[in-house]
Design a protein around this nucleic acid. Structure first.
Length: 470
RNA sequence: GCGGCCUUCGUCUAUCGGUUAGGACGACAGCCUUUCACGUUGUAAAGACGGGUUCGAUUCCCGUAGGCCGCGCCA
């Protein structure tokens, strides 16, 4: 799986929902670091919370990763399946005298916390069962296993992003390793799995920074090597508050439905917290070449959809026409839009070059292509209505006649329309805008001559006649 | 409450003691143009506050304020 000396990173989501945008960025950074170093990027599903974990969530996470193009190495590890191993480590810790049984009840513990809060003391387990002899008779209930954490000195995390972070051991406590029902807690499972998977670099959100200290204590107790940590600042919504439903898209799947491309998402997510001088457009191969832990920023970043649009637009314009056509069709399906006929799909493909030039998202492509599937007689929006004055309609009537027997290509149509405008003593725009309105029902569209060529002679002329006056 | 982290234009960021504090998105104003978009030119826009250290601080240190994270037999 992983060669000696090889760098191993991992992404370890818990399957309690879809792949969150913040999680996606974490996954991206892990993936980039592994690809940059020629190491392995592993995926572990932290499904030890049996109540909240669902197969649907696992599926959503896998799908999200696949869409983003973040391929993982090796098999997916399911944490719950490894509970036996985690338990064995807890028992080993017991044997080493580095962990102990604690019989304190939930009520007892919450009373303890209330008291500590009232006394302005740190909220921590007070170690009442740390020395069993002093603890008195054991209650008749099954105990939890707690780590016998150091009580003096400090636990230091040398973080690649945050620098050296020190925690006084007297503010950390003897946290639970094994629950009363014998199942391992997250804190234990993570450490054991990371060790067993050979993870060398732990890149994750900085909400785990204090956990890192606790995890280090387990690692030290086991005598295992410390991984390298890099705790990423969290992502916030556009208003600076924690990302929530009212900010719109949280799940990565929503971004696909919003018309963003994986390349665009990767580029944008990368720039949220990582920089390379003044570079903004950083294709994935470049990102792999350049990525490092040193250039990760330390402050939290907000999601800015305008910037995302801008970057995505860059990748839309650069995208392959066939691929974009396919993606547009897929997104239309996902959105429940009526399916395009084979002819319409061909038309979509035909006009894609001018469509993608003016779109920032696949949604804008779809909207721009709506003239293809609109059926006669076209509904006119307000601006189109305004363009089609009585004069303009009469002019369209004359134009229709002038377009009689010509080869139906955008170039020839344009030449004919220009000649017509000149003959009318009108500016091109005075002819083209009403024409656009007649053909698309809107004042904004891809270039009219492309639209006409795409529509075909018969349909284009018919739409023109619909709006023309004698 | 206790602990930790963070703080440069509205937003994302560059700067690794000496710069007219740079770029990008967005905004605004032009140009280009059959509309829109692209492209292009220009304008406005920032070092939270207070102390130090230093010949010199956005940069190093301390404090204050604000924001965020953690403090579960959740992960």
């Amino acid at each position: 799986m992983s060669a000696p000396g090889q760098i191993v990173t991992r992404f370890a989501p818990s399957p309690t929902g879809f792949l969150h945008i913040g999680g996606a960025r974490t996954a991206l950074f892990n993936w980039l670091f592994a690809r940059h170093t020629g190491g392995a990027f592993r995926l572990r599903i932290e499904d030890t919370d049996r109540q909240r974990s669902t197969p649907e969530a696992i599926e959503a996470i896998l799908e999200g990763m696949a869409w983003l193009g973040l391929d993982h190495d090796g098999e997916v590890i399911y944490q719950f399946a490894r509970a036996e191993r985690h338990r064995a480590v807890a028992e080993e810790l017991m044997r080493k005298g580095a962990a102990y049984h604690c019989y304190a009840s939930q009520e007892e513990l919450s009373e303890m916390r209330d008291r500590q809060k009232a006394e302005s003391k740190p909220l921590r387990y007070d170690g009442r069962w740390r020395d069993r002899e002093l603890a008195g008779p054991k209650p008749n209930a099954p105990p939890v296993v707690r780590l016998k954490a150091p009580q003096t000195g400090e636990t230091i995390i040398d973080d690649k992003v945050q620098g050296e972070v020190r925690f006084r051991n007297d503010v950390l406590d003897d946290f639970v390793l094994l629950r009363a029902d014998g199942t391992p807690t997250y804190m234990l499972s993570v450490v054991v799995d990371d060790y067993d998977m050979g993870v060398t670099h732990i890149i994750r959100g900085d909400d785990h920074l204090t956990n890192a200290a606790r995890q280090r204590q387990i690692i030290d107790a086991m005598g295992w090597p410390q991984p390298t940590y890099a705790h990423l600042p969290l992502l916030h919504g556009p208003d600076g508050a924690k990302l929530s439903k009212r900010h719109g898209a949280q799940g990565i799947h929503e971004y696909r439905d919003l018309g963003y491309l994986p390349e665009g998402m990767r580029n944008y997510l990368l720039r949220l917290g990582w920089s390379h001088g003044d570079d903004e457009i950083i294709p994935t191969d470049r990102a792999i070449e350049w990525f490092n832990l040193e250039s990760i920023g330390r402050s939290p970043a907000r999601i800015d959809f305008k910037k995302l649009d801008s970057i995505n637009g860059h990748y839309i314009r650069a995208a392959d026409d066939d691929a974009l056509t396919q993606e547009a069709i897929v997104v239309m399906q996902r959105l429940g839009r009526p399916a395009l006929t084979a002819d319409q799909q061909a038309q979509l493909r035909a006009i894609m070059p001018s469509l993608k030039e003016r779109a920032k998202t696949v949604i804008e492509i779809i909207d721009g292509a709506s003239f293809i599937s609109d059926s006669r007689p076209l509904a006119l929006d307000d601006k189109a209505q305004k363009l089609l004055s009585a004069d303009a309609r009469r002019r369209l009537g004359r134009l229709g006649a002038a377009l009689g027997g010509l080869t139906w290509t955008a170039g020839d149509i344009e030449a004919a329309v220009r000649a017509f405008a000149e003959a009318e003593g009108a500016k091109l725009g005075d002819v083209a805008q009403p024409l656009r309105a007649a053909l698309t029902g809107k004042a904004v569209s891809p270039p009219v001559f492309d639209v006409m060529a795409t529509l075909g002679r018969e349909e284009a002329l018919a739409r023109l006649r619909d709006q023309a006056a004698a």
